[in-house]
């Protein structure tokens, strides 16, 4: 590992140089919350953010993405990645990106995601403030964040910058970095370790144990009980860093000749997510009840994907918990409850 140090006073200049040379996306304040957005001025970057409203997956997997542009019945691919630095991503979101990387790569390589992913330099930053619904300290503890190019940690007098790849190393050119000392490396490790047991919420069991037990609770009345207040709005899906389901629809331009085949975020909590059209306008909905849809989301997070991903498909960011109008989406509550049954 290569570890470097940059003084607090030099950090602004580093950001300024990087923003001048590259497209940089990072955490930014929006009213009283934070979002990932393009950083145009160093002072816009808010590394003291707790969590962003939407996860950074939107950089590679935007809410609406053109897959094909068409003119009449002739289509053309429109994969146009743009060199980007995604800066200041918390470790839990890095874990989530690593999962979506795997899922868009397996079986059929989806370059509509992978091209932008490959053209992105992914730089993490330590959690300086913990979100009020976060539980990242107690979920998927055996899964280390990976797939990022570098990681910054705020330490005494400045930032430690750990470089993992050539893309991460490239950023050194924008600032005055010096070789970090052993003490600085140790301090950064302590800073990152110390947030792990400070989360306000906690899952009480080990991920593997949860994976098996929750799977065995498929017919538990708990699902309907929690889903009783569900509005089927899909907010929990949309804000989730590991949710990657989508719909594909064709959209005409106003000329009614040209248009695009687009994918948009979709969610398994939405009522018609699994429904098929049948003859005579009728439908077969394979997950008809709110309870069955609610259960599917939790199962996807705890059990269905664990063999593939080597851990749960939940990183403990707390976004679903805070975005749920009825406050029933929190995985901590339902998992702890099922585990105690």
């Amino acid at each position: 590992m290569n570890a470097f140090f940059i003084k607090e006073a030099d950090f602004t200049q580093f950001l300024g140089n990087m923003i001048g040379a590259r497209k940089v996306i990072g955490p930014k304040a929006r009213k009283n919350r934070f979002v990932f957005d393009q950083i145009r001025k160093p002072e816009d970057l808010r590394l003291d953010y707790d969590v962003t409203i939407l996860p950074p997956k939107k950089v590679f997997f935007p809410p609406r993405q053109e897959l094909i542009r068409f003119h009449g019945q002739k289509g053309s691919s429109c994969i146009q990645p743009e060199s980007t630095v995604l800066f200041g991503v918390h470790f839990y979101d890095i874990k989530a990106i690593d999962m979506t990387d795997h899922l868009f790569r397996e079986n059929n390589m989806d370059f509509n995601y992978l091209a932008q992913r490959e053209c992105t330099t992914l730089i993490g930053s330590n959690v300086q403030n913990i979100f009020k619904r976060a539980f990242f300290g107690s979920v998927g503890k055996g899964v280390a964040p990976k797939g990022h190019d570098g990681f910054t940690t705020k330490i005494s007098g400045g930032y430690l910058y750990e470089v993992y790849t050539a893309k991460g190393k490239d950023l050194l050119a924008y600032g005055t970095f010096i070789e970090a000392t052993e003490e600085q490396i140790n301090e950064a490790r302590e800073v990152n370790d110390s947030v792990m047991d400070k989360c306000p919420e906690k899952i009480n069991h080990d991920s593997l144990e949860i994976s098996e037990k929750v799977r065995s609770k498929f017919n538990s009345p708990v699902w309907e009980e929690f889903a009783h207040d569900c509005f089927s709005c899909g907010s929990c899906n949309l804000v989730c860093p590991t949710c990657y389901c989508f719909d594909v629809q064709d959209n005409w331009n106003v000329d009614q000749v040209t248009g695009s085949r687009d994918r948009t975020w979709d969610g398994c909590l939405l009522e018609d997510f699994s429904s098929c059209s049948l003859t005579g306008g009728s439908k077969e909905n394979f997950r008809e009840t709110r309870g069955s849809r609610y259960r599917h989301r939790i199962m996807r997070k705890t059990s269905y994907l664990t063999a593939k991903l080597g851990g749960p498909a939940c990183v403990g960011c707390g976004r679903c918990s805070s975005s749920c109008t009825a406050d029933i989406a929190d995985p901590v509550n339902v998992i702890n409850r099922l585990m105690e049954e």
Binding site: F104, E106, N107, N108, C245, F246, D247, V248, D266, L305
Partner: peptide, 18 residues
């Protein structure tokens, strides 16, 4: 038969459990 939207194992609509 399920709602196989993308056909390439990504979009999620046709999932039966895992």
């Amino acid at each position: 038969e399920r709602r196989m939207k993308c056909g390439v194992g990504k979009c999620g609509h046709c999932q039966i459990n895992d």
